[in-house]
């Protein structure tokens, strides 16, 4: 194998490892911009993974699987929304509950699918562009979810920072009292944001069980939902930085496989722990720079909104 095709192979695996993180993080970014902290990403993601797999096995179509994963992610997020937005429960505790429930439900639903070979989602080559050497296979011969992840980053950027809708979302996240006084329905905006986050987490889960490893393995999210949450902080709530961050993390988690293949003498467990260690280090670096973290943090993040009439 020539050097170039070796690099290409590594880059391809990095895209595969990064896409689930990117999908989940871009959704959570919108949720947090609206002032809601949903720590249940891991739970929504794994339910998306198992439902996506189940629907694909039942129908034979991974595209139906993707839709099923999105719907189940949204369903989980509505549960979270009802508790935190209607019943005004503690968002941290409710997010944890969502994760515990999601892990439990996925284990139960997925038991029937353990060991079954899955149907993998096939890449879609974009005619013409995919023939470009090196860049073509990397960027233009991917599956629909990779394209969707790029589309989401661009779309979220434009909606949040270049549209009236985005202004409303950010207003609700930064000062829900004022947004309410202006006549915007804080609860409605937050519900929609939370549901968008649920759909994205579901997609991230579907990516894991349909592309990353096309099968069902219990607990297959392995903390990726939590890493996605860290990515949002790392990105200081900016979509483009989420893209950079997700690819950085994807690279770190792929590094371990190549280091093992290259025969670096570190125990495998240390390499496997690397992404989690990297998350901690990144969080430290970000929180050390006070301005970066403070400026973009939605001011009402995690605070329940109680309308006074």
């Amino acid at each position: 194998m020539s050097d170039l095709s070796m690099i290409e192979a590594v880059l391809l695996t990095i895209i595969t490892a990064s896409t689930p993180l990117l999908l989940a993080a871009i959704g959570e970014l919108v949720v947090e911009r609206s002032g809601v902290l949903n720590l249940g990403v891991e739970g929504m993601m794994i339910v998306g993974a198992v439902m996506g797999f189940a629907a694909t096995q039942a129908t034979g179509s991974p595209y139906i699987g993707i839709v099923a994963a999105m719907i189940s992610g949204v369903a989980m997020s509505v549960l979270f929304g009802f508790l935190t937005l209607n019943l005004m429960t503690n968002q941290v505790a409710t997010g944890l509950a969502l994760t515990i429930l999601g892990l439990g439900l996925s284990g139960m639903v997925g038991e029937a699918f353990i060991g079954q070979p899955g149907i993998s989602l096939q890449p879609i080559a974009i005619p013409g562009l995919s023939a470009i050497p090196f860049i073509g296979p990397l960027l233009f011969n991917q599956d629909i979810l990779v394209y969707a992840s790029y589309g989401l980053v661009i779309g979220v950027y434009f909606v949040l920072f270049r549209s009236r809708t985005g202004l409303i979302i950010r207003a609700v996240g930064d000062n829900h009292g004022s947004a309410h006084s202006l006549g915007y329905s804080v609860i409605k905006v937050r519900y929609l944001a939370v549901m968008f986050g649920g759909a994205c987490s579901g997609l991230a889960g579907a990516y894991l069980s349909l592309i990353y490893t096309p099968q069902w393995v219990e607990g297959m999210t392995a903390g990726r939902g939590w890493i996605a949450l860290a990515l949002v902080v790392f990105a200081s709530w900016r979509p483009a930085r989420v893209l950079v961050g997700a690819y950085l993390f994807g690279a770190v988690s792929i590094l371990q496989f190549h280091a093992q293949a290259a025969g670096i003498g570190l125990p495998t467990q240390f390499m496997s722990a690397l992404p989690y260690l990297a998350t901690i280090i990144v969080l430290i670096i970000i929180s050390r720079s006070k301005t970066l973290a403070k400026v973009n943090t939605p001011a009402c993040l995690g605070k329940p909104f109680v309308p006074d009439r």
Binding site: T94, L96, I100, L103
Partner: peptide, 11 residues
Amino acid sequence: ITRVFQGMLLF
């Protein structure tokens, strides 16, 4: 089903 029960209970 144990973990489902536990998750529902916390909810």
